[in-house]
Every structure is written in structure tokens, then in C-alpha cells.
Simulated scan of single mutants.
Amino acid sequence: MTDDITIYHNPKCGTSRNTLALIRHCGIEPTVIEYLQTPPSRAELQALIARMDCPVREVLRQKGTPYDELDLGNPRWTPDELLDFIAQHPILLNRPIVATPQGVRLCRPSEAVLALLPQPLPSPFTKEDGEVVGIS
């Protein structure tokens, strides 16, 4: 059951893996979109970012992307142009982005996903790096 939760996931990213594991730890099986294999359309990107209520620049990833090569740090690029770049180069989309009925957000750090889930963690969760989430 997906519980209407979608994660735009990159399995090579530790934060993305931890976020997906946190969702599953809560007993939820989300829809997983490996966005590098199945990129969202420009319209889908625009809708996600609008639901996040943030500037397009906030979802741009710099590390390991053509960000510098494309000079995306230059303020001359409009939000529409930045969306075009992300649509052309999905690796520019920072991850993971999680969409739920409670909202959409970039889940960095991974525990940011907890604010979007319909139930709290059932027990503490240990991230890949050994950090424990859910202990008060």
C-alpha cells in the first residue's frame, strides 16, 4: 500500500536510502520513482516545486552534477530556465523529494520525512551511518 506517498529516489544516495528506509520503518510502502531512470516531466517538476513553496534554486544539486559547467550559480537564469535545465539533466534535482497528502519536501536530512508521515516512528531507527533517529 502506498498511502499516497511518493519518493523521488536515487538508490546511490545515502540520504535517499535512509529516507526510504524511514518511510518503510513506519509500515508504509511508498511509490518509488527512481528519477534518474524515470525523470519527472517539466510540468511534474513545476507542480512539485510549487507544492514545496520554494524557489527552484532550492532543489538544485551542485555536487556531482553539471551545475558549474552550466553556470547555474549565475543569477541570470530565470526559474523557468532552471526548470528546463533540470528537465534536461535530472541529476540536477536534489534528492530525495517526498510527496504526501501532508505536503512535499526535500528530505535532507532524511528525518525531515517524519513531518510528512501520517504516523510517528514505531521504534527508533538507525541510519546507515549509525545515527539513531527517534530517541527523545
Rank of each mutant, 00 (worst) to 15 (best):
V56Q: 04
R17P: 00
A50M: 04
L36F: 10
R61W: 05
V133C: 04
A50G: 11
P101Q: 04
P11W: 12
N94D: 07
P66K: 05
P79G: 09
Y67D: 01
Q62C: 07
Q46V: 02
L82P: 04
P75V: 15
E128F: 06
D4N: 15
L117F: 08
C54E: 15
L70V: 06
P30M: 06
L82R: 04
I91R: 12
R105M: 13
T31D: 14
L82H: 09
A87Y: 05
P55C: 09
R42F: 06
V104W: 03
M1T: 13
D68L: 09
V59C: 10
L70W: 04
D71I: 01
Q88M: 08
F85L: 04
T15W: 03
R51W: 06
I28Y: 03
F125I: 00
P124V: 07
T31Q: 14
Q62S: 13
Y67W: 12
E81Y: 05
L36R: 11
V132T: 14
C26E: 00
V59Y: 10
E69K: 12
E111S: 07
C54Y: 09
P55V: 11
H9S: 06
R61E: 02
V32P: 00
A99T: 08
T100M: 01
S41Q: 09
L20G: 00
I49D: 04
Q37N: 13
R105Q: 13
L72S: 05
R95L: 11
Q37D: 15
L121E: 00
R24G: 04
G103Y: 08
R105L: 14
R105Y: 03
N94V: 02
T15L: 09
K12M: 12
E34K: 08
L117Y: 02
P120K: 08
G73D: 10
Y67H: 14
I135K: 11
L114G: 01
P101C: 06
C107H: 01
M52L: 12
I23K: 00
P96V: 11
R42A: 11
K12F: 11
I97Q: 01
T65H: 08
R24A: 02
D68I: 06
